[in-house]
Design a protein around this nucleic acid. Structure first.
Lengths: 153, 153
DNA sequence: CATATATCAGGTGCACTGAAATGA
DNA sequence: CTCATTTCAGTGAACCTGATATAT
């Protein structure tokens, strides 16, 4: 993956869309490398993290939380279930739903992946100081959440 | 496209990789909407911008500059050529190469797309103040270019 | 009836690989 | 012979649509 921005026209280089694209491509490469050993995608990690934080969920709820399509949840969970990390069972309260829960091995695996994800993030942010990292995360968060509390930093 | 970050686990929400993914998805949606009328992708715009800035190029050079695969340049240019915006001719100095150049209509089209791209960027950055926008672009640039000039803002 | 869920089949855009043909 | 360029054929992950069966 070629993530350099160096030779690009400055019509693009100063543009948020271009920068975000290249930044995401680099980020994607980092997380991919970290999770490659386990043969997992970032989304698998996101599913495990969601279950750890919110407890047993319907598939559609997980999908909504992490912004994945419901259609794609099926295979995602098939994989995690095959590893023995999650457990699917019909929800007695609403029999349309599968109640998906984290198993003990799943919880242990998640702890490993947490470390890998953190390493990927550190690799990515390596060129920035601690203060700059915080500022960047804050700005991105505010950009996404659409608020507007000026100033700061 | 669902770009909200609201309901995601905080294990992900504070993470640069997660934030960059969601941010890029939103950015992609904005630029897609702006260019949808012309039926173009962001990459088509990037090609035109490259030709405007660097003059006639070999296909491989354009590909290198904007981080697109050489294989994919072919169809990208087919489309732009079909619109009459670029012109391909064998480079007499090195007959392996195609010298790709911007036509007059291509230059005019690019001016229109510049406006659309700018509108997409403004839409994206709307929640941020002018100072914050500059900071964000600066941080992203430094993250990608790997320098380390601390401080700023 | 309308709505929500899980699943499957398929489509599309995009990054990428591998190989061929041509020429430097 | 080695390398670079254009092109084509095809793969794979990800986002998305539409349809079905089932339950609320």
């Amino acid at each position: 993956m070629d993530c350099g921005t160096s030779g690009a026209p400055h019509r693009l280089r100063g543009t948020p869309i271009w920068l975000l694209k290249r930044a995401w491509m680099r980020a994607h490469e980092e997380i991919r490398r970290q999770l490659a050993g386990a043969g997992l995608a970032h989304q698998h990690y996101a599913v495990l993290a969601t279950l750890a934080e919110f407890g047993p969920c319907a598939q559609a709820e997980i999908a909504r939380r992490i912004g994945v399509d419901r259609s794609d949840m099926v295979e995602l969970l098939n994989r995690l279930q095959a590893e023995g990390w999650v457990h699917r069972e019909p929800d007695p309260a609403d029999r349309r739903r599968n109640s998906v829960s984290l198993t003990a091995p799943g919880r242990a695996a998640l702890r490993r992946f947490d470390k890998l994800a953190e390493a990927a993030g550190d690799e990515l942010l390596a060129p920035l100081s601690e203060a700059d990292r915080e500022t960047l995360l804050d700005l991105l968060t505010r950009m996404m959440d659409g608020r507007r509390e000026e100033g700061r930093s």
